[in-house]
Design a protein around this nucleic acid. Sequence first.
DNA 1: CCCTAACACTTGTATATACAATAAAAGTAC
DNA 2: GTACTTTTATTGTATATACAAGTGTTAGGG
Lengths: 150, 150
Amino acid sequence: MKLEEELKQTRFKDEYQKAMLNIIFTGNWLEVWTSQILKQYDLSSQQFNVLRILRGSSPSPLNLLDIQERMMDRMSNATRLVEKLRQKGLLTRKQCDSNRRKVEIEITEKGQALLKELDPVMEKSHLELTQKLTVAEVNTINKLLDKLRD
Amino acid sequence: MKLEEELKQTRFKDEYQKAMLNIIFTGNWLEVWTSQILKQYDLSSQQFNVLRILRGSSPSPLNLLDIQERMMDRMSNATRLVEKLRQKGLLTRKQCDSNRRKVEIEITEKGQALLKELDPVMEKSHLELTQKLTVAEVNTINKLLDKLRD
DNA sequence: CCCTAACACTTGTATATACAATAAAAGTAC
DNA sequence: GTACTTTTATTGTATATACAAGTGTTAGGG
């Protein structure tokens, strides 16, 4: 749907302003959508994100800063986020031997299993996206957004 | 910067997954950026958004649902958001005569003045965007994002 | 060895947000 | 008018988040 209809607005100042709002709005929209799916698995999208990051580096552990650098949302709640996931048994954390300031965080079997369960679910919602845009089009989006953040 | 570098990640599953993350990440990035600017004016980006919505409809007032419909973020905190702005004297609210369930919310002179002060500031940060992408390119982004949300 | 600075993480606190429950007014049916 | 439903907004509560201050660890200089 056009952003104008989405926000019940008749006009924007220029295409730049519209793009700005459009990206923020669409990002939000996608986030809400995935959060909705993840809720059934009792995961927030941030938590899911952290788990995927850990799977990505597995079997090597990561420390908090590593995770923070890779997160979509760079706030300083990484400690508490990781703690939540630890309580659910989805990851482990132990003090690093060589540098005791650091912690080594690793995804558990249970975490891996949960992600494995989620993969096809996420894949399925990806499919809807596939039907709306061609590969060439998403490619264009990726190129332009990367350029925008330069 | 490429999303891969931004998130220190080597690869994504496919262009669709990358686009998904790219849009969310870039939206976030833009939000953080504008929030930073607005902080000097003691406004959150949501509050700013509400003010602009009210200016858009001025001199007609809006009720809470109208505002909610036009917001980027459709949560149910509209009551409290509006109350915050009222405390700052940036808007007024009064019970609607014809339908006393509704409230009529209107931007004040002070609110108008604040937005007027902010216009050039925001415009300036728009300019940075302008330097990164051509009009044709932002047009493409707008078209593709609208299509994505169809 | 001591002092200071930098680092990696944690915690406190104030604020924001999501979601559900509630309240009050209006509309509808009888 | 009374009972029911719907609309519109508010409040309560639990959780999340941002930012600053604090803790413990390591590193470097003298």
